[in-house]
Amino acid sequence: MATKAKTNKKRRRVQADENVCIGCKLCEVACIVAHSKSKNIIRAFNEETPRALSRVLVEESKPLTFALQCRHCEDPPCTIACMTGALHKDPVTGAVLHDREKCVGCWMCVMVCPYGGIQRDLREDKAASKCDLCLELDEPACVAACPNAALFVVEDED
């Protein structure tokens, strides 16, 4: 590619295998729990308000189903579109991350993401919401929760 990302060598992201995705949406459930305050599934859903949002979305056009989240692009259009620098590519991990403090909720990132990987978070502090690769966990929560091995982490070196 001509316009190469400058900083990192690795590109890490979660990949879906649509042949074995059964459309259960357990990945979405796990994502919500992982991004909740309590990390307890029942509290995360039934007690916490606002409820955390899932950053992975299962696309459905039956029988086809697959889970989609931020691709952590090499040259992410969202980081260019973001006027406050809330969206940035982490130089160490290569993950495209979102800084909630800086976000003003203009949704430019939502508009430019070619994958639909960013959602509008319409709760009190209007902001964007996207996959952060669960960097603090051993494995992204969706990957760990998928019952049919339809999600896995891919990492390519360039």
């Binding site: 459309g23 259960c24 949406k25 459930v29 599934i41 029942i42 995360a44 859903f45 039934n46």
Partner: peptide, 13 residues
């Protein structure tokens, strides 16, 4: 009902 989080996984399965 206390444990059910209305995720609808059962419905899809």
């Amino acid at each position: 009902d206390y444990k059910c989080i209305r995720c609808r996984v059962c419905e899809r399965q």
